[in-house]
Write a protein that binds this DNA or RNA. Structure first.
Length: 920
DNA sequence: GGAGTCACG
DNA sequence: GACGTACGTGACTCCA
């Protein structure tokens, strides 16, 4: 925190804030359409600085237009800078006029950049100096006397702060910047050297000078790049150096405030419609100003300029964002929300961890362009008094829990969880814009709000990084000033509403998709949220013991590998391994990776191992052990929530293009099962005391769906008679009686069946089976001769994809495939394989989602204590009190079996145990 | 941050 | 004749 004991000289880097405010704030304008956002931003920051430091000496410094001495040194300097946007250019002149009229000393020195003016003034002043800037280069000026404050993020930097942020001391910042270079200003550094390498080198060699002196010691590609850069580094060093000795005709002591020019300010405020400031001047407000924002909540008139535009951020074009700070304002909004047909809302919180997040504020929108932010827990120094959080949430609770009040949100699964942390059960989830976007186009890369706004509303949202910073110094929302929090949070609610208004008519026009959205995706939100919050009990002690055992075995393998290679190397590095296998030992590389490296992938090493080489066998064993240890036995215990003692994953509902869910942090959908060693990890997934785990999974669901979609008689019959489908396939393809199918034949048939689901080629099947390609082709031909319906379905699907540009699941979930028309054969074939696979994988996903909703509804209505705790694509896992086991097992199986009706029976297998392994 | 690898369905 | 070669995910390590 700033030191207030002696009054410092405050120097403001106006140019840096001008750009940042312009990009960070919404495009506010006055009623004539003149942009004012950047002006608001800079003026609010000046208010804040003056209030925080109460300086006697202060100056606001801007770059002068035109060239500077740096351009003379290096003609390409700043050549990469985009031209200034017109909307920003127009704000500069009036902003400077206002700053001058407010009485701030304003410095714009021709031929000298603002940085150098600031550096020189800081140098000349005897006492403490605070430089307010958003520019990282300024860190080179920091010492015991000169500190930085980033007034937008609140980050304060003294020498220790610089070390923390950059990893080097202020004296080495110029060395650091020189090595890295600056692409925006077009200052060349060392190719491929970024912050990490720069810090590492400086830690090792102490200074740029010493690095350059020992340039021949640097190995590899970067070493070459460093030596190439030697010639231009001195110039770059000059360019990044802030001059502290430019000629100024004023001394820092002369930088004092002048009395405000009230008449001039009045005229400017009126012109740009800064009503709160106008009111602060104490003159009478003319009655003919256009209304927006402020007037609705009243009480703004006469507020001191300190409060800035806090009590109502507004502009023309109908955008009005309000801050709710009084019970009267809250009452007004509660009434409006209660009366609205539906409304959008969004929560701001202390954390992205849905189990731990606490509410900082809530925003609401009922009509597009009009929103309010209700701050409840901003606790930065100087934060204005806010309504009491618990008392206010208690007033919101009846609205949020009313199933008849329709809510719209973006990723409401998160908001539901956050509200539950405060004892509020969100009901009336009507729309989730993330899911609207996903159902309309699952192949879009991202469905987050910033992406959707940019894509569909042509609107750039305020970026969270701009108001909170990034990295480990990122602020949490409670530390964000209300001046910035309100436009950000209110915009979230407003944009959610506008996105919904954009998507909803499109969905309504598509019957199957609308139904999928309303009957599957939206109801699933609460189900997934409950599964996440239920969590899974994991035995950390058991995993720790396994970690130790794995470690011991790995060390043995490493020793043997060093002996086999006749040298030490990193077994985990594909690059080093490749060199040893293919260069040193002279083995023949069976194939290369897509990037051209000789491959060391599992199947390749297995092939080499089969040829009798020792090292590949050891590597495979080491990899297996390392994977289990690092991903599972080491990491899972760290992810146990100390409060609940359980692991809480996140299920993503809008990630997989086929309609599946995905799971992360931790991923509970890829816990090992295929090896004995791996299954031990499943044994650490346990039931709570008095409970058992119940695992229920669909048997062969994708093949059953293939039978249903294709309508192939033979395949349908096989399932209808409850046959082992791989055995039945083998009997057909190899012309053997069912009872005489060999193990080998069944294995081949199984590979064919899987291959079909994936849209395989004969080549792929041959590789999988280890047979000749012609033999594989024979199998495929035989298969299609026996199951002509499947062949027809595959051909029809590819044709449909080509004709319409998308494929659909049984329930109308669409997956777009623009690449199906590609001229590039590889790209096109990839799209064709996806076309074959997506309807089957996607239909399976639709079915289990329907089953989850049905099971969750039954569990809720039955009053049982059983909890659904995991979904793994075709499997659901429950934690069941022993007394409920029989009932739950029977009913879960029944509900999953009858979730949908197909032309084939659905079969569900289930198991019960004390741990997940036993339950299989 | 990309590439390579490997865990699951 | 060449293209590349079975779908969908997430996490870890290496290396720049």
């Amino acid at each position: 925190m700033p030191n207030h004991t002696s009054k410092p000289l405050v120097l403001v880097d106006g140019s840096s804030y001008l750009f940042r405010a312009f990009h960070a704030l919404p495009p506010l304008t006055n009623s004539h359409g003149e942009p004012t956002g950047a002006m608001h931003g800079v003026l609010n920051m000046l208010d804040k600085l003056r209030k925080d430091y109460d300086p006697e000496h202060m100056a606001v410094i801007f770059d002068a237009p035109g060239k500077t001495f740096r351009d003379d040194m290096f003609p390409d300097y700043k050549a990469n800078r985009p031209p200034m946007p017109d909307d920003l250019r127009g704000q500069i002149e009036p902003l400077l006029d206002i700053i001058k009229a407010q009485g701030y000393p304003l410095l714009i020195i021709p031929d000298v950049e603002a940085d150098d003016v600031i550096g020189t003034l800081a140098q000349e002043y005897a006492g403490k100096v605070i430089i307010s800037t958003g520019d990282k280069d300024m860190a080179q000026l920091v010492d015991a006397r000169v500190h930085l404050i980033n007034t937008m993020s609140g980050l304060y930097s003294d020498p220790a702060g610089v070390v923390e942020k950059f990893g080097v001391a202020p004296e080495r910042i110029r060395d650091y910047l020189t090595l890295i270079g600056d692409t925006v200003d077009n200052v060349p550094g060392v190719n491929k050297v970024g912050p990490k390498t720069a810090v590492k080198w400086l830690a090792e060699y102490g200074s740029l000078e010493n690095i350059m002196a020992h340039a021949d010691e640097f190995k590899g590609k970067v070493g070459e790049y460093l030596r190439e850069a030697l010639a231009h580094l001195p110039l770059s060093y000059e360019l990044v150096t802030i001059k502290c000795d430019v000629a100024l005709d004023c001394s820092p002591e002369a930088l004092t405030f002048t009395p405000p020019d009230v008449d001039k300010l009045h005229a400017l405020y009126e012109r740009y419609e800064f009503r709160t400031r106008l009111a602060g001047l104490g003159k009478e407000t003319p009655p003919n100003l256009p209304l927006s924002g402020e007037e609705q909540e009243g009480g703004a008139s006469g507020s001191p300029p300190d409060k800035g535009e806090l009590e109502g951020v507004s502009s023309a074009e109908g955008v009005s964002y309000q801050t709710i700070l009084t019970q009267a304002d809250l009452d007004t909004w509660l009434q409006r929300l209660q009366a609205a047909a539906e409304f959008a809302f969004d929560t701001e919180t202390t954390s992205l961890d849905y189990m731990e997040a606490q509410i900082v504020g809530v925003s609401f929108a009922i009509n597009a362009g009009e929103a309010a932010y209700l701050p409840l827990a901003h606790d930065y120094l100087g934060a204005p008094p806010q309504l009491d959080r618990d008392a206010t949430l208690a007033q919101l609770k009846p609205l949020l829990e009313d199933p008849a009040l329709r809510k719209i949100g973006q990723n409401l699964k998160y908001d539901r969880s956050v509200l539950l942390n405060h004892g509020i059960e969100l009901r009336g989830i009507a729309h989730d814009t993330m899911l609207e976007s996903y159902v309309l186009d699952s192949t879009a890369n991202r469905h987050d709000m910033d992406t959707l706004c940019a894509k569909y509303l042509n609107h750039t949202n305020i970026s969270f990084i701009d108001i909170a910073g990034k990295g480990k110094n990122q602020l949490t929302f409670n530390q964000i000033a209300l001046e910035q929090a309100t436009p950000y949070a209110a915009e979230d609610a407003d944009m959610t509403l506008q996105l919904h208004q954009h998507f909803w008519p499109q969905l309504q026009a598509l019957d199957a998709q609308r139904k999928l959205y309303e009957e599957v995706e939206v109801p699933l939100v609460s189900v997934l949220s409950s599964i996440e919050r239920n969590g899974v009990k994991v035995d950390a002690t058991m995993l720790a013991k396994q970690s130790k055992e794995l470690e011991t075995r790995m060390q043995e393998v490493v020793k043997q590998a060093y002996a086999a290679a006749d040298q030490e190397f990193n077994l985990a590095s594909p690059k080093q391994l490749g060199e040893i296998l293919y260069t040193k030992l002279g083995l023949h590389a069976p194939r290369k990776t897509p990037k051209g490296q000789p491959s060391t992938a599992e199947d390749v090493l297995e092939e080499l191992a089969a040829q009798g080489h020792e090292l590949p066998t050891l590597i495979l064993e080491h990899r297996g052990l390392a994977k289990l240890k690092s991903t599972y036995t080491d990491k899972l215990p760290e992810q146990i929530n100390p409060r609940t003692g359980r692991v809480h994953t996140s299920y993503h509902q809008a990630v997989a293009s086929t309609g599946r869910l995905s799971s992360s942090d931790p991923n509970l959908q890829n816990i090992p099962i295929r090896t004995e060693e791996g299954r031990r990890i499943r044994q650490a997934f346990i039931a709570d005391t008095g409970n058992k785990l119940l695992a229920a999974d669909y048997s062969q669901i994708e093949l059953r769906i293939m039978a249903h979609l294709s309508g192939d008689k033979g395949l349908l019959d096989a399932f209808a008679h409850g046959l082992d489908v791989h055995r039945a396939t083998a009997a057909e393809v190899f012309g053997t009686p069912l009872a005489e199918v060999s193990i080998e034949q069944r294995r081949a048939a199984k590979a064919i069946n899987f291959g079909l689901i994936y849209g395989m080629s004969a080549f792929g099947l041959a590789k999988q089976l280890g047979v000749d390609r012609r033999d594989a082709q024979d199998y495929v031909n035989l298969y299609f001769a026996r199951y002509p319906g499947v062949k027809q379905y595959m051909d029809d699907t590819r044709e449909q994809a080509r004709a319409q540009g998308y494929v659909e699941t049984l329930f109308g979930r669409r997956l777009f495939l623009p690449d199906i028309q590609s001229k590039n054969a590889a790209t096109r074939q990839y799209a064709e394989r996806t076309a074959i696979n997506a309807p089957m994988q996607g239909t399976a996903a639709d079915i289990i989602k329907k089953a989850m909703i049905a099971v969750a509804a039954w569990l809720r209505d039955s009053g049982l204590q059983t909890r659904m705790i995991m979904q793994v694509h075709d499997e659901l896992v429950f934690e069941v009190p022993e007394a409920e086991l029989e009932t739950v097992r029977a009913q879960v199986t029944a509900l999953m079996t009858t979730a949908v009706t197909l032309d084939v029976p659905l079969v569900v297998d289930s198991g019960v145990g004390d741990n997940w392994d036993e339950a299989h």
